[in-house]
């Protein structure tokens, strides 16, 4: 290690080495990587359930490796901690569960009607008025998560939707789900 460092100084000078070291330290000392590491460690402990020194040590090593790699890949960014989301997120999750159950019952009924199919597939284009990319993604995911509607194409300000029935398409077109997303997830 020392010999390598000596060779490096011979080749590039001491300033260059200090520069690299400082850069590395700067990355290490960033606050976000600390909270990220703490989160990963918590995750490890909960998944393994063992608190022996060997397993905790292995966990520490793998957490350090993961934080190092994700720093090199630059994936710890401003969207990894969604703290800017609204405090009404639990209410939104409850709303989603209700919608999922309602839509499921409807689709199950249509599957089990034996004589004559009652589905009427539709392609609908809906406006996506969410301001951020994250908002549009949450909206499209909410649409896809309720059976009976699938988002097919997401462009700048519209979403193309395939709906199993006319009723499902009409209910989405009233925009109540879009309102829920923007008011309960983003405080808009």
């Amino acid at each position: 290690m020392l010999i390598m460092a000596g060779k490096f100084i011979q080749l590039h000078g001491i300033n260059r080495l200090a520069f690299y070291l400082l850069n590395w330290m700067h990355g290490i000392l960033e606050m976000k990587s600390y909270s990220f590491a703490a989160l990963l460690l918590l995750f490890w402990v909960f998944l393994s359930g063992h608190l022996g020194p060997l397993l905790l040590g292995l966990g520490l090593v793998s957490v350090a490796l993961t934080v190092f790699l994700s720093q090199r890949m630059n994936v710890i960014d401003h969207e990894s901690y969604p703290l800017h989301l609204s405090s009404q997120l639990p209410a939104f999750i409850v709303y989603m569960f209700k919608e999922i159950i309602k839509a499921n019952i409807d689709v199950i009924k249509r599957v089990l009607q034996w004589q004559g199919s009652t589905i009427s597939p539709q392609l609908v284009e809906l406006p996506a008025l969410q301001k951020s990319d994250l908002g549009r993604v949450v909206y499209a995911n909410a649409i896809t998560l309720t059976p009976g509607t699938v988002s097919i194409e997401l462009s700048q300000d519209t979403i193309l939707i395939h709906a199993l029935t006319e009723e499902a398409a009409e209910e989405l077109a009233t925009g109540s789900m879009a309102k829920e997303v923007s008011s309960r997830v983003f405080d808009e």
Binding site: I108, L112, S117, L145, V150, H162, L164
Partner: peptide, 26 residues
């Protein structure tokens, strides 16, 4: 099982996705 029946009953790929959605969610 209902979802499994659904992916055989519905007429085209896009509507089968909805039936697969039942088994994925509820």
């Amino acid at each position: 099982i209902v979802g499994g029946i659904g992916i055989h009953r519905f007429p085209d790929f896009y509507s089968r996705l909805h039936a697969a959605g039942i088994t994925d969610t509820l």
